[in-house]
Design a protein around this nucleic acid. Sequence first.
DNA 1: CGGCTATTTGAATGGCATCAAATTGGGTGG
DNA 2: CCACCCAATTTGATGCCATTCAAATAGCCG
Lengths: 255, 255
Amino acid sequence: MADPSGPAAAPRAASVGTRAPSLGPLFRKLSGFAALTDDDARALRVAFVAETAFEPGRTLLGEGERGERGYVVLDGWAFCFKELPDGRRQIVNFQLTGDFLGMRSLLLHVSDHSFATLTQCRLASIRLADWRGLIAERPRLATALLWSAARNEALIVEHLVNVGRRTADLRTAHLLCELGLRLRALGRVTGDRVVLPLTQPLVADALGLSVVHLNRSLRRLREAGLIDVGAGRIEIADFSRLLTYADFDESYMTF
Amino acid sequence: MADPSGPAAAPRAASVGTRAPSLGPLFRKLSGFAALTDDDARALRVAFVAETAFEPGRTLLGEGERGERGYVVLDGWAFCFKELPDGRRQIVNFQLTGDFLGMRSLLLHVSDHSFATLTQCRLASIRLADWRGLIAERPRLATALLWSAARNEALIVEHLVNVGRRTADLRTAHLLCELGLRLRALGRVTGDRVVLPLTQPLVADALGLSVVHLNRSLRRLREAGLIDVGAGRIEIADFSRLLTYADFDESYMTF
DNA sequence: CGGCTATTTGAATGGCATCAAATTGGGTGG
DNA sequence: CCACCCAATTTGATGCCATTCAAATAGCCG
């Protein structure tokens, strides 16, 4: 194990940028896809520049703009979305600690989507040239990134199934389950309660529902004792039962 | 330009497999993402084994199975989908000539989705080890594959927006436009008419609609003179007007 | 010819959107 | 500390979009 910044590593001087970004979660994720070396860890540390915190609700890149930098979430929640001509929008997915943000915009000349912070966020960023360099010169890293892209695609595909073929209540429960499990995989969840920093307009845009109808779905889930809601926050009250209720099949996440 | 099997190349003996697969469209697509060399073309030719034709409606891999081989469509239509416990399904996207099929299943230990042929198909296939080899040993190819994965993700994301935020009529028109443009990019379409080998149950499963309702949407499009329908086939009758009707923004496809 | 699937239409139901409005809570400036 | 504003939450009423049930027709294959 070659964690570039994990707690197990001895304290080391900041190698690049204002301070060494904590790329531990990212590196752990990528290590699950390919056997990375210390050199790979070092290359990641060098290529990614730590950024100071971004405030909540900040749009980092709009559709049609040119992506100058790609990001990794060090801490906080972000999300990406597409807007329609009439102003409505579809949230594509949420990014948590260790997830990439805007890498597709970096690859394409013009971004096909937008992304923004949801909560206060700490992000590390990378320039296109450095990104290309990592892929071209580090075969194991390139392999891990392709695996990571596959995992990301699997999340989006399941989201599509959710929106296309499930009722509002199950759809809502399913999304909450996925986010809860992703937090659990990060070691942020221990018991049967999970707090998610989600407002209802946001979740409605993710699920392809109106805010009004989502609110009624949430009320039913609350009356069933599965969740609690309020003040810009949705809280899973009984994770086990919510997973059962949603008939959640986590096979698309477990690789 | 180093087309491994294009018509411009002089006839060459089959290098591997029963005959040299026509990887031209795949190579052309990948060349748009990174500058590939003759060696890259050769490596692709060696790794992909030509397969004989598959009949229409053949499921190549089911959800939960282990993907032993990845595929490239040489000719014909295929599609991938996920099934729900109640038997309904969501079609994720369609694969045309030059598109990968089942690569995500190859990377993951257990496939999270299924895929099948739609029409008669000719496919070339690759084993996991050879796939890993291409990625690890050919940096330009790895780069191109990551770009290709990004493009594929962009298609799925737009599909999600379509299902999540558009009405049935616009949703239907949008899908037909995308497929028409993809055929056009392959040089298979010249005029304002495009024939698509799609049955209505299939399109309904792609759009997250019931067959009955899709049928009514198609009727409205037909009465508007935009399409023709019948006998396992949907035909774009006036591509220009259909693009206008769908307010189609092709920026997500043009890279 | 019989069975299967695709296409099509009618009728009724229901899920979800839209419109409207009351309430709440956090943030900000006076 | 209060007044105000703005966004989020919540509920009611209404109507439409889409599903479901039902059935008829048509085309394909064995």
